[in-house]
Design a protein around this nucleic acid. Structure first.
Length: 787
RNA sequence: GCGAGAGUGGCGGAACGGUAGACGCAGUCGACUCAAAAUCGACCGGCGCAAGCCAUGGGGGUUCGAAUCCCCCCUCUCGCACCA
């Protein structure tokens, strides 16, 4: 068990409740540990770790220094959300409608110098390795591939007609150099150096750039915002059209982080460019003719055409297939002219890990005025977080601490300043799985143990981790390999993505969130406050969260129904990859089953044992067949993570056991019932271990624990089908079923099917065109079309 | 906005391209009970007396046969780099 324990929630709690993040965190860990233990989960508590424990984060600091040495870390500038009133950096989720969540102030972008892991170095192999990860869901691999975003295109320079602030050209990256003749404008990001140069001389431009700074830093916010631009009045020359010049705009939809932070706008064949061109009345010349369109009449309306076609209005490209032939031809021409070249571009950006927060792992470096950035010597690790911090001032408490950051430079000994940023908590969670192999090692990882255990056979996590956490962990494993800590590249051989636990949410008349136990249902189905009776609004079913108070206390469920019921319900409700809704009715249903099974099993256990070698009745054989088929079905379901199906098969076996109870006097029934009860118990043991052990102990006093037994094996003689039911269709519609031997010949089955009364009626007077037989499954008679 | 998924009875869901709705919950009727709970039995997608017809978000297509494969649309969910 590992506790991902650093992060913002602890700091928020500290500010709101005047408690220390460490106390709040360790109290939560203690509470959750107790709950998990009561659930009876098979966790190896000897390997427990918490990321906020110096024993863990100190090792992480060593890893960082190794990566620094290996050249995998560097400082870069990047933009953050800045709350000018609180004087603090905001997470994207703390920016609501462009304003700080606490202060309500308009958020600005601010540039900071920060630490970055050079994940982009591994972009090609992170992409290529996805192909071989056959035990990962296809959709996760697809999302990662799109995120890494390899694209082929061209990088080219547009010379400015008149240089501005020492800038004489604008570099652009494009995946569609074949549409260069369709250019209508050039646009740079508000953060682009040229935008800054223009803003220096032009107050209106400066105002526009400042306005863009209030957009927040998330990609979603930028892309959703209405497209806006500012015409700088500057013009650039076209590489293919010496005489022509195009206007240079500053546009809010151009991302500084992608490509070169500048684009050439081809409105006819890019939707964003088209929206922009229509808004500002810029020309929209088409240069790719879709198949079946007439060159003379083809025009772009409100939708850009980004499909394939033939190049038109494009000089030397005319007549080539676009972008198939024309893209290569355009790149060749750019290279011949020395104006640009074909390049591979990646969407993936380096991973910024600096956070201006207290509750995180300190970044172990020291800033010295004469020596620059100096790593903390490994002998001086861990760099401990100070305990005596206050949250009464805005900003990072580490910055305000009276003495913590004042240290002497490890190089020159002069006064220096400790780095007060801490790591992104994704760093903590990028290597914990490897630390499990040797949780107490003096080094980050003990090579022998890691080589023995890694990679993780089966990793389980929510789909919300499909990209960031899983990609960072893949990067970290490669970085750790480069630093000599591990021998593998991929951390997780198999991946399963599970859903979240959800619950209805409730709000009182005054709008505040209510806990489920505060809400009572009236007979008419409406909701009211359990004690005051005030009306309650039932909100959506949402992922459980403390902020919405739609949580249930597992402790209360366990106290009332027991751990087995809680476990059984969690697994039985729906497939694990989907969200599950926690409902009281569902829990009581699971609880009833535990009672029913216990009653069925203890009734059998109370019977005197009987030799299994006497005559065996039809009923006893039926039960034995059901039990052994359940072994196959449950095994199959569990291996495929279809826990809800495994549960359904066990319900069926319990039903068969109940039927058998009514035929208790049939020959051979007692041993058959004992066998079936034991099989049921052993099959459900992974889900209801406590009840399973109890049942087996009653059936065989003094015997082994289920936990010590091998998984049950089915008797092939009992699982083979005696007869199969074959559906009979006429023209694809079901008309009847017939029962045949599993190995019956096709002709025989067809003959039987044809005689089935209902089928015969449907076939009467019709001409047969075709007979289809799928062995053991279906017959389909296809009639001849009437002329 | 971009990327990725999901949508099946009243509800959760099952279904190698082959009998749609397994199994559970809820519900209806019955048994037991003075009564209730628990338990047991029967029923339980819609229309129809029946034969049968309709039905897996909507519309097209492929196929002997489509919940399943393809195209378009609608709705919801996840991710979008400082929540984790």
């Amino acid at each position: 068990m590992g506790w991902d324990a650093f992060g913002l929630p602890a700091e928020n709690a500290a500010r709101e409740r005047k408690t220390h993040p460490a106390k709040w965190t360790w109290d939560n860990i203690a509470a959750m540990r107790a709950e998990l233990k009561r659930m009876g989960l098979s966790l190896d508590w000897a390997r427990e770790l918490a990321t906020c424990d110096p024993a863990y984060y100190g090792q992480q600091q060593k890893l960082f220094l190794d990566m620094l040495e290996a050249g995998l870390v560097e400082r870069q500038e990047s933009w953050v959300n800045w709350d000018p009133v609180d004087g603090t950096v905001l997470a994207n989720e703390q920016v609501i409608d462009g304003r700080g969540w606490r202060s309500g102030a308009l958020v600005e972008k601010k540039k900071l110098s920060q630490w970055f892991f050079r994940i982009t170095r591994f972009a090609p192999e992170l992409l290529a390795a996805l192909d071989g990860m056959d035990r990962w869901p296809e959709r996760v691999r697809l999302m990662q591939a799109n995120w890494i975003g390899r694209s082929e295109g061209a990088r080219l320079a547009f010379p400015l007609a008149e240089p501005q602030g020492g800038i004489d050209k604008v570099e652009v990256y494009t995946t569609r150099p074949d549409t260069l003749f369709g250019m209508s404008f050039l646009a740079v990001a508000p953060e682009h150096p040229l935008a800054a140069a223009v803003a220096e001389r032009n107050a209106a431009a400066a105002a526009f750039v400042a306005a863009c700074r209030r957009l927040g830093t998330s990609e979603a916010a930028l892309e959703k915002a209405e497209k806006q631009g500012f015409d700088t009045g500057l013009r650039v020359r076209h590489p293919f059209l010496p005489g022509a010049t195009y206007p240079v705009w500053i546009a809010n939809f151009v991302l500084m982080e992608y490509g070169t932070g500048a684009i050439f706008g081809c409105p006819a064949h890019d939707q964003r460019d088209l929206d922009f061109a229509r808004k500002y009345g810029l020309p929209v010349p088409p240069v790719v003719l879709p198949p079946g369109e007439d060159r003379e009449t083809f025009a772009i309306g409100t939708e850009a055409y980004d499909g394939t076609g033939v190049a038109i209005n494009s000089g030397f490209l005319d007549g080539l297939s676009a972008p198939g032939e024309s893209k290569a031809a355009a790149i060749a021409e750019l290279e011949r002219l020395g104006a640009g070249k074909g390049v591979v571009n990646w969407r993936l950006r380096d991973w910024g890990v600096s956070r201006q927060r207290y509750w995180g792992c300190p970044i172990p470096v020291i800033h010295c005025e004469s020596c620059g950035v100096v790593p903390v010597p490994k002998s001086a690790l861990p760099v401990l977080l100070p305990d005596d911090v206050t949250f009464d001032k805005p900003g990072n408490p580490l910055d305000h601490h009276p003495v913590w950051k004042h240290v002497s430079c490890p190089h020159c000994g002069r006064p220096a300043r400790r780095e007060t940023d801490t790591f992104d908590t994704f760093v903590d969670s990028s290597w914990y799985f490897a630390r499990y192999c040797s949780p107490n090692a003096e080094e980050p990882l003990a090579k022998g143990a890691v080589d023995h255990w890694m990679p993780v056979d089966q990793y389980i996590g929510g789909i919300e981790h499909a990209i960031l956490h899983l990609l960072y962990s893949r990067f970290f494993t490669r970085a750790m390999k480069q630093a000599g800590h591990v021998s593998i590249e991929e951390p997780f051989a198999g991946l399963f993505t599970q859903g979240m636990v959800t619950h209805e949410s409730y709000r009182g008349a005054d709008g505040r969130w209510l806990y489920p136990e505060e809400v009572a249902r009236r007979p008419d189905g409406s909701a009211a406050h359990a004690s005051t009776g005030e009306a309650v609004t039932v909100g959506r079913v949402e992922a459980m969260s403390k902020s919405k108070r739609n949580t249930v206390d597992p402790g209360a469920i366990i106290a009332r129904y027991g751990a087995d019921t809680a476990r059984w319900f969690i697994l039985s409700d729906n497939p694990p990859e989907r969200d599950m809704e926690w409902t009281e009715a569902g829990v009581t249903g699971a609880w009833r089953f535990t009672q029913r099974l216990w009653r069925l099993a203890s009734a059998v256990a109370a019977l005197p044992e009987q030799a299994a070698d006497g005559a065996v009745s039809v009923e006893a054989t039926r039960l034995r067949r059901a039990a052994h088929r359940t072994i196959l079905a449950v095994t199959d379901a569990l291996e495929g993570f279809a826990f809800n199906v495994a549960v359904a098969r066990l319900y069926e076996l319990a039903n068969a056991l109940a039927d058998a109870e009514k035929a208790a006097e049939a020959a051979g029934m007692t041993p058959a019932r004992r066998e079936a009860a034991e099989i049921a118990a052993r099959l459900m043991a992974p889900m209801m271990p406590h009840l399973a052990e109890e049942i087996v102990a009653c059936l065989r006093p003094g015997g082994n624990l289920v936990a010590e037994m091998p998984w049950p094996e089915a008797d092939a003689a009992l699982t083979a089908a005696e007869t199969v039911t074959v559906a009979v269709q006429v023209m694809g519609k079901l008309r009847g079923t017939v029962s045949v031997a599993p190995d019956a010949a096709e002709a025989e089955v067809l003959a039987v099917a044809e005689r089935e009364p209902n089928v015969a009626r449907a076939l009467a007077g019709q001409k047969l065109a075709k007979r289809i037989y799928v062995k053991g499954r279906i017959v389909n008679f296809v009639l001849a079309r009437e002329a």
